[in-house]
């Protein structure tokens, strides 16, 4: 009973379309939690509601017991609720090191300091380098982001998030668009993250989900169908129906 991130009757409608339908989701501290569901189930909408990119029509979001429903995105991020994006959201003209150092400096609260060069902020630069090294990106530190292959860019997406020192990390299909061989590597990186980082993963690839997650929630048509361990989920008739239905439909 130690949920770090929780939603209470969360609803979001677009016109008449209900994208999120009374979702009560609880992510426990240190969890490796996955959120699955067929295309159009509203997974990304839910992430957007959690991070504050969208405002809910009804319901509340709490982060470590605090109601953050009205809190703007950047403030939630400062509190440790950090996300990655399904489609890379990077800084094409920055070098890898620049962009990660920027993220670190923002976390350190240096973002409003305007006189000392970022390059002279030792703490920020050092930490950025450590993160790059852990993700195997150090060799590309001076490459311009847009010149890197998509798989490498995917790692930057994660590096930017790690630089925020997430307490809860929302990974929106981290392996999307990455070849299978590279996605294995990517998940090894994710699996090595310390336990004090709670992870909520959205993923399409069931193999990856069942190897990584210890808890799975199934979202169908905006509503939570069920939540359980991977074993139960894998054998649950309704889940099979939803997925097989999709596969054959």
């Amino acid at each position: 009973m130690n949920a770090v991130l929780q939603t209470h009757g969360l609803v979001r409608t677009f016109g008449g379309f209900v994208a999120t339908d009374h979702v009560d989701l609880a992510v426990q501290a240190g969890a490796r939690h996955a959120l699955i569901g067929p295309n159009g189930a509203g997974k990304t909408t839910l992430i957007n509601l959690l991070t504050g990119y969208l405002a809910p029509t009804e319901g509340r979001v709490t982060l470590m017991g605090e109601d953050v429903t009205r809190m703007p995105q950047h403030a939630r991020c400062r509190k440790g609720l950090v996300r990655t994006f399904q489609i890379n959201q990077l800084f094409g003209d920055m070098t890898v090191l620049e962009s990660v150092a920027m993220s670190v400096s923002e976390r350190l609260g240096l973002g409003a300091s305007w006189f000392k060069p970022l390059a002279a902020c030792g703490e920020a630069v050092d930490e950025a380098a450590v993160i790059l090294q852990r993700l195997g990106l150090l060799s590309d530190a001076y490459e311009t982001t847009r010149n890197l292959a998509y798989g490498r860019q995917r790692l930057i997406e994660i590096a930017l998030a790690l630089a925020q020192h997430p307490k809860v990390l929302l990974l929106d299909e981290p392996a999307a668009g990455v070849p299978t061989s590279e996605s294995r590597e990517l998940f090894e990186v994710i699996a090595q993250l310390p336990r004090d980082v709670t992870i909520l993963l959205i993923e399409h690839d069931m193999d990856l989900v069942f190897r990584f997650a210890e808890r799975i929630s199934v979202l169908v048509s905006g509503a939570l169908l069920l939540e359980d361990t991977p074993e139960v989920i894998a054998n649950h008739p309704r889940v099979r129906e939803v997925y097989l239905g999709e596969a054959h439909g």
């Binding site: 920055m94 962009s99 976390r107 930017l160």
Partner: peptide, 15 residues
Amino acid sequence: RGIQMNAQRMPALSV
């Protein structure tokens, strides 16, 4: 520069 290149991403970096 970050805002200019990708304003959407910046709030997710606590900006």
